[in-house]
Amino acid sequence: MFLLSINSNAQDVKTHWTAEQLMSPDTLAKRIQNHQTEHLTIVSVGYDDIIAGGVYVGAGEEEASINALRQLLQKTPKDQEVVIYCGCCPFAMCPNIRAPFQLLQEMGFKNAKLLNLKQNIKADWLDHDYPIKDE
């Protein structure tokens, strides 16, 4: 419950997301495995580009990454599903997810999602052998 409304000290940006805006790793993994990502844009706003089929814009704590995300989605239809992830650490301590998620709201994306990596990308994605990019 606390995770749904946090005033981040790190970025001083109040950001809200609802339970409906959280996508489970299992859901995303199944969609990638079943090739059901045609209307889904996966964006890493963290420190690495790990998830198969994703696009990397850089760490969300950096202004250049926010600009890259804006540029990436400029011509994307506003009803497109966009899921962002970082996975360095739990949401409460992550410096990268709030500003990008806020940008998605400001740009009017109605289906903006945050990948629900409760612990980190290792525990919630890599350890489950979910699809990753080839090296």
């Binding site: 690495d48 790990i50 650490c89 612990q119 290792k122 890599l126």
Partner: peptide, 16 residues
């Protein structure tokens, strides 16, 4: 290698 580090895996690290 961020969280893909084989060393992190060998040491069983789940969180920093």
């Amino acid at each position: 290698q961020f969280w893909k580090s084989p060393i992190a895996k060998a040491y069983g690290i789940q969180m920093l």
